[in-house]
Nucleic acid binder design. Structure first.
Length: 337
DNA sequence: AATGAAGGCAACCGCAGAAGG
DNA sequence: GCCTTCTGCGGTTGCCTTCAT
């Protein structure tokens, strides 16, 4: 136990590595292997502590390190593994050949974590944030929306009936609008319910959860490690994923989230998330229009089934958490908001 | 063009577990 | 079983670059 004293020694250089130091370390390790990190600096002629050398080697000089932006698959893998393992960066890195735990950690903190927060998810639990103030903007927007629609068309049912009065192609459009309206009603109700729901799941034990998991983790399509990923049962952790957009791409900021990822086409309104086993009460927004056209929607408009692009994994019984902010570019949402 | 803010990343710090004496 | 040393990990910091004003 106890801290290594190596870094307490005075006179050892700190800070950024020079090219000369890199070459010394690289040459020594290539010739002799790192052996004992503690003795390595002296043997290699470096005025650094062993810890610093190890870090430099593992995070930068190692020949198998992959540089550059994270791919879509890597991003998805990180998300999924983080939902299971939590901040076990080394464990996550083990599933991403060529990536270091430090790199993944930085990527998480600077990109994925922020995006999850922006989307209303708790980055630690991967669940929709349940604190009231986090959900307040959604509640306000939805409440305003409800009032606006109520003022314009009376009750949702009346609005729907009124809208259904049309005939032919126009009637179909109206039916879709009615279905959408009902869906938003459902959103509002769910939002209110969510804010007062328990936060008991917020502090789950990642290791215990991982051990207990037995179902199918929503893994990225084609990810070579997907078979190794810890599975998530339907009753355990939900995990969310981002749409298939280039990570850190220039378009990212402008386009925000894209929809119908995985080649789902324009009709796949939400392939944005694969929500496995969450306890939410909302249906996915996906295929709402189809559902309306096919009369598959239940009376409350919240029973439509989902279509997911995640390896074809059925999510019919896996309600998605749907918030308007998840779909900023969706015409359906922008039409209303 | 200058300046401040924000983002991104490399590196450090300190804790905890494993290993060995 | 206890103590010391070593290694690995996760959190945090600080510097550099980019962007916005």
């Amino acid at each position: 136990m106890g801290r290594s004293p190596c870094c307490d020694e005075s006179g050892l250089k700190k800070g950024p590595w020079t090219q000369e130091e890199d070459e010394k370390l690289l040459q020594y390790i290539q010739k002799n292997g790192h052996g004992s990190w503690r003795t390595l600096p002296r043997l290699a002629g470096l005025n650094r502590c062993g810890k610093s050398c190890r870090l430099r080697w593992t995070n930068y000089l190692r020949p198998d390190i992959k540089r550059g932006k994270f791919s879509q698959e890597e991003e998805q893998t990180i998300l999924h593994l983080h939902s299971v393992l939590g901040n076990k960066w080394s464990a996550i890195a083990a599933h991403l050949p060529g990536r270091t735990d430090n790199e993944i950690k930085n990527f998480w903190n600077t990109h994925l974590k922020k995006r999850l927060i922006q989307m209303g998810f708790d980055p630690m639990t991967h669940r929709p944030r349940t604190d009231f103030f986090a959900a307040l903007p959604q509640l306000i927007a939805l409440a305003a929306l409800r009032d606006q629609l109520a003022a314009a068309g009376g009750t949702p049912a009346a609005s729907a009936q009124h809208l259904h009065a049309g005939a032919g192609a126009a009637g179909v459009d109206v039916a879709i609008q009615a279905a959408k309206f009902q869906y938003l009603q459902c959103l509002l109700q769910s939002a209110a319910a969510t804010t007062i729901s328990s936060t008991a799941g917020a502090a789950h034990d990642a290791e215990a959860a991982a051990a207990a998991l037995g179902g199918g983790l929503c893994s990225p399509q084609g990810t070579q490690d997907s078979a190794d990923l810890m599975p998530v049962s339907g009753s355990q952790l939900p995990s969310c994923t981002f749409p298939e957009a280039p990570v850190g791409s220039e378009e990212e900021g402008d386009q925000g989230l894209s929809y119908g990822g995985g080649g789902g086409g324009a009709d796949d309104v939400v392939d944005v998330f694969a929500w496995h086993g969450g306890g939410g009460s909302l249906p996915p927004l996906a295929d709402l229009s189809d559902a309306a056209n096919n009369n598959n929607m239940s009376a409350d408009g919240c029973s439509a089934t989902a279509s997911s692009s995640f390896g074809g994994a059925a999510t019919a019984s896996s309600p998605l958490p749907c918030w308007p902010e998840f779909f900023p570019d969706d015409p359906f949402i922008t039409d209303f908001l």
